[in-house]
Each structure stands twice: as structure tokens, then as C-alpha cells.
């Protein structure tokens, strides 16, 4: 799929969403995300953050308005072409949504399998990435046997394994402490530096203020973009580090278990 780096990667025009015959939970939402941008999606619980993300990852159809992803109007894209678009969007679901009957390895391997990647590549990259998030010793563990934090890391690994162009995370810091939350944010920033467009829904305002990225503010279905830098400007935060062992070690060093391995070679994937 060709992606024009100058066109917005996601754009909403007057998007409205209602569930069934209920009230509009999103009203006239209009915004666009430049490739490589980093946004926080903030708002009270029930403001419509999850709903907005679902529209972006093509889980829902808007009731009205226009959504385009990678420059293509979703409404006119044939259904059979949507899976390929979804594969370019990595999602960290609010409840992780790991498949309990599959091992950690198989959960993370899913996006690659679905995309038809080679078996040897899958083996290599999944082991790499799981080692990297400190789960080298849990490759065969089923999600229910893992702690909440470990499950979260599996779900993040699954979201990024296929090197998505867009990474969406729905309250990824919901059930971890601030320090761990901050580390997670740094991880997302590293991915962002590699060109991934990132949107993180959260209602942890302290975290948002510390990071200094633009905010998409949702209030009772209305969206407003505030703060941040002008489009085109570098999104890189002050502390500049390579996407390297240091960052990874920093991110998950004292989490538990195994020492982090080398960073996965994202460029080789897909």
C-alpha cells in the first residue's frame, strides 16, 4: 500500500457516531493526523475515547461523516481490502484482548501469521521482541497464567510486531503505576521516532503534561486538538536516545524476570 507522507495518515470530517438508536457519542469530529505524529487522546471516562479509536482501527462504521485512513475513504473501500489496512494499524486494546488459548508466543505471532510471514521470520522476530519486553522465559505461557503487567507487554508486543504505520493504545497505563507508565510512554516515543504515528488514549493527565505532546481533547462527544507543535515540526522529545538496549533496559529492567535482549529489527518485518 502506498502511503503519501504528505497526506494525513488519519483524517476525520464531521464524523458522528451513535450506538444503535442511542444518542451520538461522537459529534462532528474533525481532525487529521500527520504521518509520524504523536497525540494523546484525553477525556473523562465515557467521553468517547475508545469509540474514536475503534473508528480508526476499523472496528466500527461512523453513523455519518467521512473517515480516511492512509488517504483512502473507508466508506468506498471494498470490504476485502480492509484487512490489509488493519494490518498497518497496531492496537493495544484496553482489556488487552489476548487469546487465552494461545501461548504468549502465538499471540504475538498472530499479526505476522495473518500477514502470511515466513515461519522462520516469525520465530526469530517474535522471540526477539518477547525477550525485549522481558518475557523470554514466558514464550509458552498462556495469558491467564501471566500477571497483568506481563499480559500488557504481550499485548504491546502483538501491537508492534508487524511494524504498523499507526499505533493506537487504549488506556495502556490504566492499571500500572506512574513510573511504569512513563517507561511505556518512552517506548511509544521510540516507536514514534521510527516513523509510527501514535495515538494514546488516557485519562492520566500528569503523564500527558510531562510528555508535552499535543492533546486530542474529547468532551461529551466533541473533539478539540490543543497544544503540541505545529505540523511538520519534529516530534522528538528532549531526551534523544537510540532505540537500543539502553532504552529497552530502562523500560523494563526492574519489571521482573529475564534480561532484555537486543531490540527487534523492525525494518526487516513485512
Amino acid at each position: 500500500m502506498d502511503i503519501d507522507d504528505n497526506k494525513p495518515i488519519v483524517s476525520f470530517e464531521n464524523v458522528g457516531l451513535r450506538y444503535g438508536l442511542g444518542p451520538e457519542v461522537l459529534q462532528d469530529v474533525t481532525f487529521s493526523l500527520a504521518p509520524g505524529s504523536f497525540h494523546f487522546l484525553v477525556g473523562e471516562s465515557g467521553a468517547g475515547k475508545s469509540s474514536l479509536l475503534k473508528l480508526i482501527y476499523l472496528a466500527l462504521k461512523p453513523s455519518r461523516g467521512l473517515i480516511s485512513l492512509f488517504g483512502r475513504d473507508i466508506a468506498t473501500t471494498p470490504r476485502r481490502e480492509l484487512p490489509a489496512m488493519r494490518r498497518r494499524v497496531g492496537v493495544v486494546f484496553q482489556e488487552f484482548r489476548l487469546l487465552n488459548h494461545l501461548s504468549a508466543f502465538d499471540n504475538v505471532a498472530l499479526p505476522l501469521r495473518v500477514a502470511g510471514a515466513k515461519k522462520s521470520d516469525i520465530q526469530k522476530h517474535v522471540v526477539e521482541l518477547l525477550s525485549w519486553v522481558g518475557l523470554k522465559d514466558h514464550l509458552d505461557a498462556r495469558p491467564p497464567t501471566l500477571s497483568g503487567g506481563q499480559q500488557q507487554r504481550v499485548s504491546i508486543a502483538r501491537a508492534v510486531i508487524a511494524r504498523p504505520r499507526v499505533l493506537l493504545a487504549d488506556e495502556p497505563t490504566g492499571n500500572i503505576d506512574d513510573r511504569m507508565g512513563l517507561r511505556l510512554m518512552h517506548l511509544f516515543e521510540e516507536l514514534n521516532k521510527l516513523g509510527t504515528t501514535v495515538v494514546i488514549a488516557t485519562h492520566n493527565s500528569r503523564l500527558v503534561e510531562r510528555m508535552g505532546h499535543p492533546k486530542m481533547l474529547l468532551d461529551e462527544g466533541w473533539l478539540e486538538i490543543v497544544g503540541g507543535r505545529a505540523p511538520g515540526e519534529s516530534q522528538a522529545p528532549a531526551h534523544k536516545k537510540e532505540f537500543s538496549e539502553t532504552v529497552l533496559a530502562d523500560t523494563f529492567s526492574d519489571v521482573d524476570d529475564d534480561a532484555p535482549g537486543a531490540p527487534p529489527d523492525f525494518e526487516k518485518l513485512i
Binding site: A84, M85, R86, R97, L99, V114, A115
Partner: peptide, 13 residues
């Protein structure tokens, strides 16, 4: 059903 949905959202045909 939930697993079916997850596979779908991950981009499976």
C-alpha cells in the same frame, strides 16, 4: 466470538 473479532481486527482475511 471475541477471538474471532480479535483476529478480524488484527487484519485477518
Amino acid at each position: 466470538r471475541s477471538a474471532i473479532e480479535v483476529l478480524h481486527l488484527i487484519g485477518a482475511q
